[in-house]
């Protein structure tokens, strides 16, 4: 395949950026999208130009490090698929493809397609955990967990923290990410003691980081590679309301 790529180039966070066209040839349908970018970078290196910077690591869809906006869609046209797992068989010879970084005020561009997503870590640090000091854990089978609760927790815990939900949201909200963690921990008996404070503190941190609010548009879940459903956002609202009515959080 022969493709034209319009790629966002930006030298650093303060520099202006622009879409720059590149031509790549001999792209095989078996390649992943990132392997196609590897081909471009080899080509740029050979020409003495700066290769395109993009984040990636595991290349098997689980680490959450990769992610670009492809023709306006976070992670590209295939549902439930990270950029690294998107293969070129889904594109046509001669196609022109726009490649941009995640766009959100809370995710500043560091270089080209690389953005700073540390805000998501800070949301977890504000309460996205169960306090369980090493060594103090009770015997694992002493607390049975109903299978439907365990399954719900798992479905939520599948979030890979890639940030596509934020990139897709017209409000730049990380509500799907937030709801997934609140649902994961709140579905388990171990997560109950901190459930109220967790919901309130994480929600406050989400706002403090500059993410927008949720208006139930659903773009987030449409692009989510882990298939986190929209109702997990409702879980946040429900938990926050419950916490506020009980008032038992610090």
């Amino acid at each position: 395949m022969r493709l034209t790529l319009n790629i966002w180039r930006q030298a650093h966070s303060e520099a202006p950026g622009a879409l720059v066209p590149y031509l790549v040839d001999d792209i095989s349908p078996e390649m992943s999208f990132l392997e196609m970018l590897d081909v471009l970078n080899e080509q740029l290196t050979a020409e003495g130009e700066d290769p395109v910077a993009f984040d990636h690591d595991c290349r098997e869809g689980i680490c959450g490090m990769c992610g670009v906006v492809i023709d306006g869609i976070a992670h590209g046209p295939e549902a439930l698929t990270t950029t690294c797992q998107l293969h070129m068989r889904h594109f046509n010879d001669g196609e022109e493809i726009d490649v941009e970084p995640w766009r959100s005020g809370a995710f500043p561009v560091l270089k080209d397609l690389v953005v700073d997503r540390s805000a998501l870590d800070r949301i977890i640090a504000s309460g996205g955990y169960i306090t369980a000091p090493t060594g103090a854990a009770p015997e694992a089978n002493s607390t049975p967990v109903a299978r439907e609760d365990a399954d719900r927790a798992f479905d939520a815990a599948a979030c890979i923290s890639c940030g596509a939900c934020v990139a897709a949201c017209p409000n730049g909200s990380a509500s799907l990410f937030l709801g997934a963690k609140i649902t994961h921990l709140g579905s388990l008996p171990q997560g109950q003691p901190e459930r109220d404070s967790r919901a309130v503190e994480m929600t406050e941190q989400h706002e403090a980081e500059g993410f927008g609010g949720c208006t139930q548009i659903g773009e987030c879940t449409a692009v989510c590679p882990a298939g986190i459903p929209l109702d997990m956002i409702s879980q946040t609202s429900s938990d926050v309301l419950g916490a506020l009515s009980r008032g038992n959080f610090s």
Partner: peptide, 12 residues
């Protein structure tokens, strides 16, 4: 034990 206490959703 430690992982379960942290909320790791093991198969059940």
């Amino acid at each position: 034990d430690q992982a379960v206490a942290q909320g790791v959703p093991f198969a059940r």
